[in-house]
Simulated assay, not measured.
Amino acid sequence: MKAFYFLISLLALASSVAFAYDPSPLQDFCVAINDTKTGVFVNGRFCKDPKLVNANDFFFQGLGRPANTLNPLGSGVTPVTVHELLGLNTLGVALARADFVPGGLSPPHFHPRASEILVVLEGTLYVGFVGSNGNNCDNPLFAKVLHKGDVFVFPMGLIHFQLNVGYGDAVAISGFGSQNPGLFLIANATFGSKPEISPEVLTKAFQLNEDIIRYLQKTFWL
């Protein structure tokens, strides 16, 4: 009888593990297409007829050039998701180039659909992420100063940031475990939502004067 229950438990575990992952692809590729008349809808995008696919569907040119950093944050990102590279559709990966002037910041944000792995190509970055509540430790910060060649991982859905603490420009490449990782900027979403969140909610949440909340809501968020 014990062996029977052990077998049932093992099968249940195997089933839960199996359903925790996406199914294996049933074709080599599924290049995204915006024309709904000539495609098949798969995982949020329509697929191009395989007979019409060519090498350019899997090609992106532009990561060799720095992104625009002429903004108050002093940083810029060149994304390569399924929106920029249609051949990424259903492949579960994406990447981005991030450029920073000295003092440049990628402000606190998170990606709702992907973990991120970052490698520094040039410069010095102070990076980190904040964990959730639990395990007798509320919102722990995991942070490091990275130099050229260093790698850091940001778990999916956790708030993280990057700051150039060096004297020169910094460049990093990030890989994502999703074709469309998404981006949720904390300040933008909190104070720049349309329509705006009630100031009563934000004054109590942040323990700030309503005048400060009104000021933040009128700020132009990048």
Rank of each mutant, 00 (worst) to 15 (best):
C30I: 01
V31M: 08
A32K: 09
A32E: 13
I33R: 08
I33C: 13
I33G: 11
I33K: 08
D35R: 11
D35S: 15
T36R: 15
T38P: 00
G39A: 04
V40Q: 14
V40K: 12
V42R: 13
G44K: 10
G44F: 13
G44S: 12
C47F: 00
C47W: 00
C47I: 05
K48V: 07
K48F: 05
D49P: 14
K51T: 06
L52P: 03
L52H: 01
A55T: 15
N56D: 08
F58D: 07
Q61C: 06
G62N: 13
L63M: 15
P66V: 00
A67W: 09
T69F: 03
L70S: 10
P72D: 10
P72L: 00
L73E: 05
G74R: 04
S75P: 08
V77P: 09
T78Q: 11
T78N: 06
L85D: 10
T90S: 10
L91F: 10
V93H: 08
A96N: 13
R97Q: 13
R97V: 00
R97E: 11
D99E: 13
D99I: 06
F100L: 09
V101L: 14
V101Q: 12
G104T: 10
S106K: 14
S106D: 14
P107V: 05
P108V: 00
H111S: 05
P112T: 07
P112C: 07
R113V: 04
A114G: 11
I117H: 02
L118E: 03
V120M: 01
G123T: 03
G123P: 05
T124I: 14
L125C: 01
V127H: 05
V130W: 01
V130F: 04
G134A: 09
G134L: 09
G134D: 08
G134Y: 10
N135H: 09
N136C: 06
P140M: 04
K144P: 00
L146W: 02
L146T: 05
L146P: 04
V151N: 03
F152P: 06
F152C: 05
V153H: 01
F154V: 08
M156Q: 15
L158N: 11
I159Y: 00
H160R: 05
F161A: 08
F161Q: 05
F161T: 04
Q162I: 02
N164P: 13
V165I: 15
G166V: 07
